[in-house]
Design a protein around this nucleic acid. Structure first.
Lengths: 149, 149
DNA sequence: TCTTATTTGCAACTTAGTTGCAAATGTAGA
DNA sequence: TCTACATTTGCAACTAAGTTGCAAATAAGA
């Protein structure tokens, strides 16, 4: 169990049952990755997860592998927010939590914020406007309040 | 002048005058980069520009530098389409084009479509939901009709 | 043509991420 | 609880993408 960062709301047992729920073994590395993502205020880059957990003695290749596996298992979303850096975010475990939400990314400082309070509506300007596909993620880019001043 | 690819609509002279217009020297590398981007059907990744132009004897560091400089000069846009790969696209030389619109990117095939017919509306779920900043661009990601089948 | 600041090519370097493999470990079954 | 075995880990070596410093080459103005 990793200490530090935001006090995790996710207990060790909860993390384990989440892993078991998708048929993955409960290893220290995976639990640590889940807890790190859970404690983060915003989606983490692989690099930041690696930096953080290497401090605790985990190996970087293990962490990269864990992130990939958790993503494949559907526990973690891989966000591609458009700055050529991948980010990982723990999926809401129960559906009481944040539903799917857009992300906001500041093009100046790179800060990423979950726009949990927002719904997105796509409106065709004409009746025959058709969506080019099935939407799965919305990314809004702009200048955050700090940088816009 | 680079041969091959889509027959460039951009002549050598046009490329030169574009460079001069922003006060940059007309060098073989920059002209080649402009022509490569112009001939491409869709935005190119730095890697693909490098691969393509190295065949003609240009050095990769020169090409990376050219891309950065052309971008800083405003001749080339750097698209961050959210697949952890940067892409460069020659800016339309005249602004006859479409109003601001969201872009759709297929996470399977990488195809990018301009959703020119659409407006996007972000609605706060509660009255106190506040936008985290000033929005400037919206990217929708998902599966295009071809890949969703 | 000459001069000078800019740009290029090279090679070495950095950084992020990947891979192969032996050792360690989680889990199911006895 | 103990055992067996498949899975996972840590290590080290590797790859690929992009960057940097610098001497040589070159564009552009005088």
């Amino acid at each position: 169990m990793i200490k530090g960062g935001k006090p995790g709301r996710l207990t060790l047992e909860a993390a384990k049952s989440v892993l078991r729920g998708v048929g993955m073994r409960c290893t220290a590395a995976r639990i640590a990755v889940i807890q790190a993502l859970e404690a983060a205020e915003s989606p983490m880059t692989p690099g930041s997860v690696v930096d953080f957990l290497c401090e605790y003695g985990f190996d970087k290749s293990t962490i990269y592998r864990s992130l990939t596996e958790l993503n494949e298992a559907g526990l973690v979303v891989r966000l591609d927010l458009g700055d050529a850096v991948r980010r990982f975010e723990l999926l809401p475990l129960e559906n009481d939590g944040a539903p799917e939400h857009p992300h906001f990314m500041c093009v100046d400082c790179g800060k990423v914020v979950c726009m949990s309070g927002f719904d997105v509506e796509l409106k065709g300007r004409s009746r025959k406007a058709r969506s080019p596909g099935i939407m799965s993620e919305i990314l809004v880019r702009g200048h955050c309040h700090d940088c816009a001043t």
